[in-house]
């Protein structure tokens, strides 16, 4: 947090100093270089900081939560053992193998097991031991889900220390993440605006010497990117994510879209918890995890960009609307005055 903030502030102040007197091209070039360096530092620095923070958080949570006792798991094992003993007793007492009685007894035992199991599951048990739950990938997704405010909830801290650590981690992580979000949004918005302007110019005119013109133009007149373009970008991003996850995770298209939208909106309803078979949880491929991680971080940046661009567009539109309404009212007023006058003159 500290060094990055310092960097950005010094960068901005130096830019402010240079803005006053930079006329000759040498100075301007220097300033450009300095800006580029500052840009790289802040962007790469903040991005790296976010990733590093997530990794450190993952290790911390593995340390804290991995040592916690496995009370629920033991309780379930005990339940299962009791159930099997009950079934054995039933088999022993009805050793005539009278099937109906036996079935009734066994069904009772199973029902008992099922009810108690349902209770434990509702308290948060999901069929995995702590080692399986707190694999590195799961912990990384957990720390990511804390500071992006997604909160999937497929992995949650159980111990008191873990909960306190979560709160502290969120308190420091969320401002860091917001910094990243803002920066990323600004940079992406600038580059997207530049790209849009370039494409726009290219499509509008195909004259000779257009290159020079194109490069100068974005600085001179700011072209406002319409919000439909932003929406298209967002839709394309969600569609990409959908296709990626369908191929990677064998989800259906709808599930994949649901995951993308709820994650990018920071709702984070995680309903694809690998509960059914324990092997699923273990065989979480690291490549998949990395792709998910990058997808989420980049997606947040793209959403920030769209917010940035759309706000501008909406502002312009609102201003235009206000002007239109003002003109409209003026027109009505003039007409009313004219009508009034005409009536007066008739009288």
């Amino acid at each position: 947090m500290g060094p990055v903030g310092d960097k950005s502030s010094t960068g901005s102040s130096s830019a402010a100093y240079n803005a006053a007197g930079a006329d000759n091209p040498k100075e301007r070039l220097k300033e450009c270089c300095r800006k580029l360096v500052a840009f790289m530092c802040t962007q790469v620095g903040v991005g790296g900081l976010v990733v590093g923070y997530a990794v450190v958080g993952a290790f911390c949570f593995i340390q804290i939560e991995g040592q916690a006792g496995d009370a629920q798991h033991h309780a379930v094992e005990q339940l299962r053992h009791n159930c099997s003993v009950n079934v054995w007793n039933a088999t022993n007492t009805y050793n005539v193998l009278y099937r109906d009685n036996w079935t009734r007894q066994v069904t009772d035992a199973l029902t008992h097991f099922q009810v108690n199991l349902a209770l434990i599951v509702k308290k948060g048990y999901d069929g995995r031991t702590t080692e399986e739950t707190w694999s590195f990938s799961a912990a990384l997704m957990f720390s990511l889900s804390i500071f992006t405010m997604n909160g999937y909830g497929n992995v949650v801290p159980k111990t008191m220390l873990g909960k306190a650590a979560t709160v502290v981690y969120a308190v420091f992580g969320i401002p860091l993440y917001v910094l990243y979000f803002r920066n990323m949004g600004k940079v992406l918005a600038q580059s997207f605006r530049w790209l849009y302007t370039w494409v726009y110019q290219c499509s509008m005119e195909d004259k000779a010497g257009g290159d020079l013109y194109n490069q100068q133009l974005p600085q001179k007149s700011r072209v406002i990117v319409p919000s439909t373009a932003c929406l298209w970008v967002l839709a394309a991003y969600v569609a990409t994510g959908t296709v990626t996850f369908v191929t990677l995770e064998d989800w259906s298209y709808l599930d994949s879209t649901f995951f993308c939208v709820t994650s990018l909106c920071k709702i984070g309803i995680e309903n694809f918890v690998p509960v059914g078979s324990i092997t699923d949880a273990v065989a979480d491929h690291p490549m998949k995890l990395v792709i998910k991680f990058i997808y989420l971080l980049l997606g947040m940046g793209i959403i920030a960009m769209c917010f940035d661009l759309m706000r501008e567009d909406v502002q312009v539109r609102v201003r235009n609307l206000k002007m239109d309404i003002g003109l409209c009212f003026e027109d009505i007023r003039l007409r009313a005055v004219a009508v009034y006058r005409r009536r007066n003159s008739f009288d």
Binding site: R80, H81, S84, W88, A118, Y125, D126, G127, G276, S277
Partner: peptide, 21 residues
């Protein structure tokens, strides 16, 4: 009992999925 445990385990995962999802 070992074999019964295997069956119970599969039943258990089914119940967990039903409750959670």
């Amino acid at each position: 009992k070992q074999e019964v445990q295997v069956h119970l385990r599969s039943f258990q995962s089914h119940v967990i999925e039903a409750v959670r999802n």
